[in-house]
Design a protein around this nucleic acid. Structure first.
Lengths: 226, 226
DNA sequence: ACAAAAGTGTTGGATTTACACCCATGA
DNA sequence: TCATGGGTGTAAATCCAACACTTTTGT
């Protein structure tokens, strides 16, 4: 199919790609697949695929996300549409890039069965060689993620249901790649009224147990965090 | 052609739309066309059109902008991609919406000759009934414009080559729809070092002549304006 | 007892807001 | 001379950044 497209070059195909982020072990990770095409044998690529005529772009993203990562009901956001003529060697494909945020305790179900050879989490700070313009897409997603951390409450999409203040601060530190002051951070978060104590503590570590918090609401809103 | 698409419903067409803003007479205006299709006889619509197989999305926007408004070399920015299934009654069309900013002294050349009956500037604060999902697109563009005024220097794209401080302040007031304090505004702008006095004044009005300024650089940059 | 992370306030500096009068011009 | 918008500074309030010690636990 795609080969035909290349030859005729008569249509513009609409596809989607998703940059899926999660923080695991204090490291920002991106979910990538290993394409089977020989051209990209040495590269990794973003999960994605075509938009079908009878599904919306949003639905296409959800479908591919579920088909490839077995995940649904996560923060999902349109990023940018990449539309240069030669971005895909197999045809004229315009891709509506998105990004997704997955909390670390989310059950996911990676499926290697389909058109790609492998799928796994890779560090965002040490990316392998990437197919298509996917490097650029990931960089754009990272930028967006960084800026949205500062003026929205999306951090809730990267935290488990219950979390400590340090965990929350760590999300900021990992993504922004700088240390924050503990007292100032907690002061700012407190005044925003986004989270509340659950009344239990995280025990079992060889140090003072930390209070557990949870988000009062998980609606996206713009708030001045940093 | 479009009718065929509707029946077969086999392909997704990629199009672009542009929300073209300018401030004229202290009013924020949007450039709209009057479609010829009977369905939209009573509506206005955004200028736009298909992306051809051999042109990039960016090039398609520039082409349509030139074909419809006779304008080139203006601030142009991708906004959002609208991809719901039924947004266009004539077929499955995904539209990559953009916005453009045009300075008031820019020569433009509106062309009513083509597939639409009329083209003209309409007030953004009192929009007519709009075709497709173009109301939503304009609202999204307005939001984006408002937020970018605050953290970038794009205001230069809405001002003539030489301008007074009051003119600049007016751009902010019109778009943000609130009054600003003259002294505080000038203080903030001054510290950003974006503009310089040209050394002449705007005479001819029955009041004290105003200093004229110009932008030191017309590169987009993010700066904390407000 | 010790190591490790949790919790918790204050101060100085920077930034932001509010606010009013005189000036230069054209009519 | 009058009406109009242009140009200009200061003081109070708020916000932000820097900074260190005590607590609680597991081993």
């Amino acid at each position: 199919m795609k080969q035909v497209l290349k030859k005729t070059h008569k249509f513009v195909i609409v596809a989607i790609d998703v940059v899926i982020f999660a923080i695991k072990d204090g490291i920002l990770q991106v979910l990538l697949i290993k394409p089977k095409q020989p051209v990209f044998k040495k590269s990794w690529a973003l999960p994605g695929g075509m938009v079908m005529p009878k599904e919306s772009v949003d639905d296409a993203v959800k479908r591919h996300l579920f088909q490839k990562a077995g995940v649904s009901n996560v923060h999902l956001e349109q990023l940018y549409t990449f539309g240069s003529v030669n971005r895909d060697p197999f045809g004229r494909v315009v891709s509506v890039a998105h990004f997704a945020l997955i909390p670390p305790d989310k059950r996911i179900n990676l499926k290697t069965t389909e058109a790609y050879a492998d799928i796994k989490w890779l560090r965002a700070d040490n990316l392998p060689s990437l197919a298509y313009d996917h490097k650029e897409i990931i960089m754009t997603a990272l930028e967006r993620l960084r800026s949205k951390l500062a003026y929205t409450n999306i951090v809730y999409s990267l935290l488990p249901e219950q979390f400590t203040m340090s965990q929350m601060q760590q999300v900021y530190e990992v993504i922004l790649d700088r240390k924050l002051d503990k007292r100032n951070f907690q002061k700012k978060i407190k005044v925003l009224n986004l989270i509340k104590k659950v009344g239990r503590q995280k025990r079992g570590e060889p140090n003072r147990p930390a209070e557990l918090f949870t988000f009062i609401s998980k609606k996206s809103q713009t708030v001045d965090v940093l």
